[in-house]
Write a protein that binds this DNA or RNA. Structure first.
Lengths: 135, 135
DNA sequence: ATGGCGATGTGATGTTATTACATCAACATC
DNA sequence: GATGTTGATGTAATAACATCACATCGCCAT
């Protein structure tokens, strides 16, 4: 169960990064974001990474570990999202975000049974989406 | 459901990398492996990455996406391992590897429902292990 | 012996992420 | 108004992770 801290007003850089991610339907790497934002004055990776860090804290952006990239949250207003799973199409890059209570309860259960204090869970499925499979 | 292809005899480099990983109780990065193996003649990252790639194919090593590092499989003889989950202690680096049929069936179920052709699943829990929590 | 093939060696390069340090704006306190 | 504090920002350098391109070698089937 992750706690997304409440999001205050975003700063200029955070807004720029979030908007850039929201315009995309798929994930972007930090450096791709940097390139897109150069015209808005971004000059260094750190500007992107700092904005991303906050956006992730606020639950507005997710990091996809298996891609080293970042995606806008698809239900940013659902403040209660716990464990989130991602289905990532390797053909088209599309990402589906979903939760499953049973998965969450099994993983939490394992943690409880093993006295493991869970702080963050990554669930990422790689494969081919329905559309790409059809094509 | 991952398919681990049957492992043939390992090559010299694969053997060296696997042995190095097996000696550790936690994960190692490719570059840490490289450093450890310099005395055995390793000189370039690619030697490590190539060996790792095969070892992963054979199911003898797992990649931890959230750590960019690699760990020897804890049940390398269990040829049937499907989805594997990892519990990673952020204090001591210890990794517990386990499977859960229910988790697997829920994620497979989602994939089937969404016509998503699943090729590989990453499940990584970060937190604090029982020992570190006690200490 | 010749060709094919998988493994290896090597250097250069590409990509992702962080460290260190300087500056700035907003706001509070004296 | 001067001063301190805090969070955001700017910038350069560097660290950490991963791949590309190309040459070579050993093995084995023809």
């Amino acid at each position: 169960m992750q706690k997304a801290m409440h999001a205050p007003e975003l700063t200029k850089n955070q807004r720029l990064v979030l908007d850039a991610l929201s315009r995309e339907d798929g994930p972007l790497s930090a450096y791709t974001l940097l390139d897109q934002l150069r015209e808005h004055g971004f000059r260094a990776p750190l500007q992107v990474y700092r904005a991303l860090e906050k956006l992730i804290d606020y639950g507005l952006v997710h990091r996809l570990e298996s891609l080293n990239s970042f995606v806008a949250c698809s239900h940013p207003h659902d403040h209660a999202h716990g464990m989130i799973a991602f289905a990532i199409c390797e053909k088209c890059g599309q990402v589906d975000e979903f939760s499953d209570d049973m998965v969450e309860s099994r993983l939490s259960g394992w943690s409880k049974d093993h006295a493991f204090k869970l702080s963050k869970t990554t669930i990422e499925m790689r494969g081919t989406c329905a559309q790409c499979k059809a094509a």
